[in-house]
Amino acid sequence: MTLLAVERIKLFSTRSPWWCMALAMVITIGMAALISANTDDRFPLTVSVSQGFSNFGMVVIMVMAALAVTTEYRFGTIRATFLAVPGRVQALLAKTAVVALLAGVVGEAVAFGSWGIGTLIKPDADMAINSSAEWRNVAGTGLVFALAAVLAVAVGVLVRQTAGAVAILLVYTMLVESLIGLIPTLGQKIQRWLPFQNSTNFQTAGNESFMNETGGLDYPFGPWGSLVYFAAICVGLLVVALVVAKRRDA
């Protein structure tokens, strides 16, 4: 518990996490408002449509999570941390836990904020969260954000360098996974095993909307299986990162 408190103090005593959280929430919810306001008979507002921008929030939170590690390496405070807590695995686990928890909270705020502003703007639309698919789509966002943050922390520990870690995370998440689909036939076979395609499957499976991009892929798992698979990849990468950090000179 002490270590969690330490990492909480560290995270909240600098500005960038606040900026990232504010940006993730304000822009995502703001865009949800813009989307909701422009829905009409042709493009009807549904629960799923209100969540259309949540990926933006996720990548911003991934940047925050990676920064939580790379800034420690950049400013040498990681060494101060390892002097105060020589058990590196515990120190880094505590950091991961704090960052993931925060990401989860932001995810829920983003999801319910987007949904809430949609219901406010279009009170007549059917925005009740009834089915389990709809619950996954909204409440599942926090889980996905938390796991994505774990992955980002792992990449941060491995790369140690802000520019590299942020670029790898963003280019991979936003570009590589979708561009791979351009490989004829083989592309989709690969895509169905990619982590963020599976996290999208967890959130959007069974939710029909005019902006649903994930149809088409023949996933090896159902939505919850996809979540477990996504979690396994994130946690697996974290384990690798912890082993590397333990062996490496600080």
Binding site: S13, T14, F75, G76, T77, A84, V85
Partner: peptide, 28 residues
């Protein structure tokens, strides 16, 4: 053990007191 290896090992956007507080917290 107390060590001063590099005075620059602090986050530039963190106050001096916050810097010492997280260190303090970690060792009760």
């Amino acid at each position: 053990v107390g060590a001063l290896l590099d005075a620059k090992w602090v986050h530039p956007n963190r106050s001096a007191r916050s810097h010492l507080r997280w260190l303090a917290k970690s060792n009760h």
